[in-house]
Structure formats: C-alpha cells, structure tokens
Write a protein that binds this DNA or RNA. Sequence first.
DNA 1: TTGAAAGCGCTAACAT
DNA 2: ATGTTAGCGCTTTCAA
Lengths: 343, 343
Amino acid sequence: MGEKVTIRDVAKYAGVSPAAVSYVLNGVNKVSDETKQRILKAVKELNYEPNLTAVSLSKKKSNIIAVMFPLINDSLATIFKDNHYYSEMISGIEYVMRKHGYDLLISGANNPTECMKWIQKRNVDGLLFLGVFPNRLYKEMKALSTPVVLVDTYEKYERDFHHITVNDENGGYIATKHLLDLGHHAIGFVAHHLTDSPIDKKRFSGYERALREAGMQTCKEHIFEAQDSSFENGYKLGKELLRHPTRMTALFASSDTLALGIMKALQEGGKRIPDDYSIVGFDDLTFSSYSSPSLTTVRQDVFNKGVVAATAIIQAIESHATTLQHINLSVELIVRNSTAEKK
Amino acid sequence: MGEKVTIRDVAKYAGVSPAAVSYVLNGVNKVSDETKQRILKAVKELNYEPNLTAVSLSKKKSNIIAVMFPLINDSLATIFKDNHYYSEMISGIEYVMRKHGYDLLISGANNPTECMKWIQKRNVDGLLFLGVFPNRLYKEMKALSTPVVLVDTYEKYERDFHHITVNDENGGYIATKHLLDLGHHAIGFVAHHLTDSPIDKKRFSGYERALREAGMQTCKEHIFEAQDSSFENGYKLGKELLRHPTRMTALFASSDTLALGIMKALQEGGKRIPDDYSIVGFDDLTFSSYSSPSLTTVRQDVFNKGVVAATAIIQAIESHATTLQHINLSVELIVRNSTAEKK
DNA sequence: TTGAAAGCGCTAACAT
DNA sequence: ATGTTAGCGCTTTCAA
C-alpha cells in the first residue's frame, strides 16, 4: 500500500516526461497518439492515481464542496435530528456531486470569522448553505470569491448569492385554501419563527392571502410560534392549545414535525384528528404518511431540492458566469387523513 | 479576497524565514521567545491562515475523515431518507471531529475498487463505515493502511478493523422478555435481513434466548424479513399480516421505522395497538415517541454512538497504536404505549 | 536559535 | 510534439 506511484514513475515507465503524462490525464491535446497510448498503458499497469492534494495545490481547485449547517448548541444535533428534511436533501446533493467528481464536506457554522477562515484554509470550491444563519454570516460571505448557493433563504440576499427556494407562499396558500374549502373558518397558523424566518413569512402570507380571498381576516390569537421545527415544540404547543379553549377547528403548521408533535399532544388530550381538529403540515417527510392519522401536507421534493442545489453550485463553479441563479421549486398539496370537513 | 497571504509574507513581515514561522505555528521549540512573539504578531496582523492543502501535501496528512455509506440504487437515498438513525449519528461524529480539527467528508461506496482509489487519491486520514457493505469491500479494505472504524458490523471483521457496536443480543432479549412478561406467547420477530445482517442475527439470538428461558421454542411462522429498514416495507409486512390470520399477539421489530410501518398497516386494518398487538421497536428515534400510540422500543444512544465512533477513529489516527478497539455500547428498554398485557 | 534549500506530487508556461 | 523547469504553500533536514 505504501508504495505510492507518482506521475514521475509513470513518466519513467513510459519513457516520457511528467508533463506529457499530465497532459494526457488532463486531456490537453499536445501529445501524439502514439505516446498517448504508451502513457495510458503505463498508467494502467502501474495502477496510477493522481494525488488530489497535489492537484489541488497546483490547480488551486480542490473539487470539494462544503455543505454548511447552522450550529445549535454547538452541534448539528437539533437540526439534523429533528428534521429529517436535511438528510433527504443531502442524499440529493451527494448524488450529483459524486457524478461530477466533487466531494462533499459537511460542517457546522456559526461564527462568521471562523467560517471564513475555514473556507479559505480548506480551499473549498463552493459552498451550500442549508437553513438560516445569523445575519452577520451572510454579510461576511459577500466578500468571498467562492461561489455560494443558499437554500431556503429569501430576498434579502437575492442580489448577493445564488439561491434555491420552494414556492412557500403558494404552499401556505393551498394549505389554507384546502382548509377553507373544507368549511373551516378559524384556522390557526403555526410558525417556527415568524420574525426571523423568511420561509415562515412566505408561508404566512400565503395563509393570509387565502383568508383574504375568502373575505376573512387573520386573527392574532390564531398565530403561534414554536421557536424551532422539532416534534417537541410542536408537542408543547399542542399541550398549550389544550389548556386554552379556542374556536379553532383547523391548524396549518409550517413543518411536518411540528404538525405531528401538535397532533400527538392533541390526541393525548382526548381530541380526535381530524374530527376535532384538521391539521396540515409542510414538507411531506417520509414518515408523515405513516402517522395515525396520516398527515395532509404541502409536499416539496426534498431530494430533488438537493439535486438542484448541487447542480447550481457546480455550474457556478465551472461556468464562471456572473449571473446569479434563483430557482424556485413548486410544491403540491397531498391530502391524507388529518383533514376533514368541518362538522 | 484574492490576496492570499502566505507563510512567506508572514516571514518577510516579521523579518524571519518561512521556516521560523512554520516552527512557531507547529509548536516546534526552536525559536527564541522574542522572535516567536514577533512572528505571532505578524500572523495576527496579516490575518494569516495556513493553506491546508499545502500542509496536507507536505505532511501527508489531510485532517479529513471520510464517512462511507453503502450505496443503494446508486444513491444514499434509502438509507438516509428512511433511517433517521444515520443523521443522528452524523451529528455526533461532526461534533467530535470539529472539536479535533478534522473535517468530515461524506461519500457513498459500493464498488470496492473505486472506493480504494478514492481513498488514496483523497488522502483521507481515516474512514468510518456506517452500515453493512458488500463482503468484497471489507476484504479489500484490509490492505489499506488507513485506519478504519466499522459501525454495526460483527465478529467476522473483528480481527481486521476497529468497531463500534451496541449490545444487540441484549436488546433482542429485553424486548422479548418484556413481551413475555406481559403474558404474550406467540411473539413475532421482524428482521431486515436475517441472513445478511449480523445485527439482526444478534437481535434474533436475544429473542431466542428469552423464549428459551421461558421454556418456549422459536417458531418459523413467527419470523419475518422486511428486506430493509423502511417504513414502507414495514407497512407492506403489516398488510401481509392482516391477510394471514395468526395467533401472534405481539411483534418485535428490528427497527423503529419497521415497527411504525407495521403499526400503521395493522391500524388501517382495524387492529388496535396495543390491544390486539403489542409492538416493540429498536433504536428509539426521535419520532418514535410521537407516534400514536407511542412506541415501546430498545433505545440506543445514536448521537453518542457517533461520538464514540469519531473518537475511536481519531485516536486510531493519532496514536498509531496497533491494538484494535472494539466498543460495545449498551441499550435500554423504553416502555411506552405500544405494548400492553395480553388480554 | 536561525535560515537555506530540498522536497511533497502535480501543473503549466516556456523552450526546444 | 515533447521535455524542462519553475512554481503551488508548507514542512523539515541540514548546515551555519
């Protein structure tokens, strides 16, 4: 194993210069067909594999793309653990990267300075930011010459980065419309963070639009914030709901995990879903169809989102085009058993 | 941004040689305190960050650890998507690696040759194999000088690699014992793959042991294979169960996802959990406590498993010790609402 | 204690 | 078409 064969070995073996080998390997058309064959043969026989570290140093290109997650309590734990969502997306990202010869580095980021340093040191070719980071981070990022693709972030940064989003406004709209069509009037909206999260804002405006079209107004008492997208906070919120009688008969939650947590608490409190409450989630995670009752939700194709994000960053890296990409993916309503006509 | 400051710039600025700077940065005690301070000052003022690619090339150490997943249908999809389990573990791994200055590369592997090549090319310092891979892969891996830590693989490779496991046999035992204690006699066992999966075999022997101690025999009709750990296959199996009347009153499934899928199918078929069937899962994923009913399961601390695995690989890399580590983590039974006394 | 210089393995400008 | 050579940025041996 230790006997690493270098480009020099190949060159010697083929009776040519290292440069010639490099040319052949990099598709530089400077070598006669005859020697080319000889070189290729040597490569094969010696089982030569170029050392990517050396290539990186020389080309100043690492073929590594980093996927950054916000850090919570100094670890990816919460985000990763409670939100399936990201693993599905990473699958999509990995798939594309592997096909294109890039490797995928996973890292948490919170401190902008640390993050910037790390990017420089590691020499990554591109960055994918999944989720929402502290504002300062984005600001510093702008100074970066490395291409950045943002996933799930809004207008604020449109001018500075590529980004991939889904049609959250429409998602909020169709979810709410569905509930209205079922005859519900008092419909709650459960956000993660209404103030911090651009995504939630969008979903909320879809919710508002649907109500408005139905001639209704949003009502303060029907808006809730869970702080994050965990089951647990959904559950807590559900318990809270049980304590305060309300005229609501339906809820639209900004994520499936939240919706499922709420549903659980409500059920434990003796409420029946969908008889007492209709519930709609957002995302359509795998297990949302396996809950009891199965969850009506706004589906986004998360694997595909990963594919699109990875494709975008690779394109940004390889094309040197200066135009920013802004891709907005569509969503669709999946009606299952957590929603029903208002009694 | 482009103006990358190199070690030479620092040296010049401090009026010393690049070597001196390198010494200081690497804690080599060869520099007078006076110059050391001068160098440190220069580093700070120029905001110097060593280029890790160059360091890698020079030191022949990348400070990158790769986490390998088996590829299914050419993507991580299934494994990642349907099994939450891995995301929780990655959180643990990332946490430790970041603390120790390693970066985490994620990659799928199936073809052993490709995999080996990739490892060499990328110059990774260590490998973490999550899950079960084709036999050929392990065989080739042995030739590798790079340290490898296996997670969830058994005896077969004990002599060749470090590995982290949980006490699966005991898990199978306590799950079954719990069911027996509740008065169940006909207890089904649902495996992923009984033949291929060393984990399932262990869990199965725990199951057998409990039965044996209770003076019972395992019964062929009570053993099932789901093929993988997806909800979906659990669901299918549940549907199957509905079609074939059985005297079973309890089921122990080798993963939570499987258990939840089965539960769903059974519920849809009008069966009541735990009244008609008691169900026990394995893993204790976050959402297992949020199902209806919440799932009784064998808990393993997956985040911690990641922490332990990462710690082991780093130790293997840095200590050059030749003794193989074999760490077996404990499990515990979490009794929730999917199990009850036999009526 | 300090520094010059020879690598690490590859690429690319330049010369032949 | 092919080879020479000077980097890429850092480490480390060796000499001063």
